[in-house]
Design a protein around this nucleic acid. Structure first.
Length: 412
DNA sequence: CTCGATGATTGCTT
DNA sequence: AAGCAATCATCGAG
């Protein structure tokens, strides 16, 4: 700053605070006065340029010497004390006392929001926490979807810009403050400037810069809000589950038709198998139950299909189990442990007394897997029997109910 | 483009 | 908090 300030002083004798700098070198009046003629103006500019070019160390030294001369003037102390007196009387120095304004509520709001969104908080956790919160609000807490990472990337971009700008402002503020303080200190030798006044000036500068910072914070908040709304909107865009996932869910639903309310553990397992979230599983079951109930006829075919499917699995499992019990020695019961009874629907220990149709089943506490299989088979039988008249019979289901069911009954 | 299917959301009830 | 019912919004086949 030094060089620049010196040139400023040399040129106009006016500093940034608007005070005349003592000892500054005044420019001689330009030659061509109002410069209506081109030549005259050219001449003026030429003169000014010349002046600038001739500001040499020598002329600066001259100015410095003048300043020094003024400072050492015999009248200086007297004049200085008079100035001090006048100042005290006019109360100029007291004005600095009414500072300390309370924190701006709007600024606090902005700060809180930036902190909550993870823009101004600690580096790592904040951003992802906000993203996770948004994801949780949208019903998929652990979803690592494209939108999620996109959101995080954009947020960190905003964060980076915010911090860079903030740093720039702070640096500029500090630089300017030092600049002004130096000037004031310099001037305090020739006119009375109390430390309080310097402090006040610094406060003014800080306030100016903090108003700029507030604008930055405000626009950052706006950017985050826009990003967030876009992100949430994007999450609303649904994607159909994979065929495999739908199959797994349907299998569970129809094999637990008597009580299609998976436990939390079952939901978690299904979620894992289907690569979806637990809340998506809950949504799916909620939708399925209500839609099934609303239009059982429409879902009959699907129900039969899945029940038959599960029945085949169950029958195979039972047959394998029976074979195991026959072929394996009783001392090695686990030798065929490749999951004979290890069906997906293993959480259903009790049968509910009432299914969605309002049919009541005779509930009995049995081994979970076997119970589930019986459940499925019962369904096949009841469905094929009940809808044979309407559908003209379902050959697959009928055959299954005739053959597999008897197999199961026999093996049981 | 239409329309049924379907995942998600919302407001209410239990 | 979980579930129900209504509704929204999008997907995807025709």
């Amino acid at each position: 700053m030094d060089e620049q300030a010196r040139i400023l002083q040399a040129l106009g004798g006016v500093n940034l605070a608007g005070h005349s700098v003592q000892g500054g070198m005044a420019l001689p009046p330009p030659h061509g006065h109002d410069g209506t003629d081109g030549d005259g103006r050219k001449q003026d500019i030429g003169d000014i340029l010349h002046q600038i070019m001739t500001i040499t160390d020598q002329s600066l030294d001259e100015a410095q010497a003048k300043k020094h001369g003024l400072n050492c003037h015999r009248m200086k102390p007297a004049l200085f004390s008079v100035l001090c007196e006048i100042k005290e009387k006019t109360g100029l120095s007291i004005r600095g006392a009414q500072e300390e304004d309370p924190p701006d509520p709007q600024l606090m709001r902005l700060d809180n929001m930036l902190l909550a969104e993870g823009v101004s908080g600690p580096e790592k956790g904040g951003g992802s926490a906000a993203a996770a919160a948004a994801a949780a609000a949208a019903g998929s807490p652990t979803d690592n979807s494209i939108e999620h990472s996109d959101y995080r990337a954009k947020l960190s971009q905003i964060r980076q810009i915010y911090h860079t700008e903030l740093e720039k402002y702070e640096q500029a503020c500090n630089e300017f403050t030092t600049h002004v303080m130096n000037l004031l200190r310099e001037q305090s030798r020739t006119r009375p400037i109390s430390p309080k006044e310097i402090e006040r000036m610094v406060n003014i500068i800080h306030r100016k810069f903090s108003s700029i910072q507030m604008q930055l914070k405000q626009s950052t908040c706006e950017a985050v809000m826009i990003l967030r709304s876009r992100f949430l909107d994007a999450r609303r865009k649904r994607r159909n589950f994979s065929k495999q996932a739908t199959e797994i869910l349907n299998e569970y639903f129809y094999s637990h038709l008597s009580n299609p309310y998976p436990s939390e553990e079952a939901k978690e397992e299904l979620a894992k198998k289907c690569s979806i979230t637990v809340s998506q599983v809950s949504n799916w079951f909620g939708n399925k139950r209500i839609r099934y109930k609303k239009n059982i006829g429409k879902f009959q075919e699907e129900a039969n299909l899945y029940a038959a499917k599960t029945a085949v699995t169950a029958a195979h499992a039972v047959a394998a189990a029976v074979q195991n019990s026959q072929t394996n020695s009783p001392t090695t019961p686990n030798s065929g442990s490749s999951g004979s009874f290890n069906l997906p629907n293993s959480g259903d220990l009790f049968m509910s007394m009432q299914n969605l149709n309002g049919d009541s089943y005779q509930g009995a506490q049995v081994g979970a897997n076997v119970q589930s299989q019986v459940d499925t088979l019962r369904h096949v039988i009841s469905q094929t029997a009940g809808y044979n008249d309407v559908l003209g019979g379902n050959p697959i289901a009928t055959e299954l109910s005739n053959n597999k069911h008897t197999t199961l009954i026999l093996t049981l």
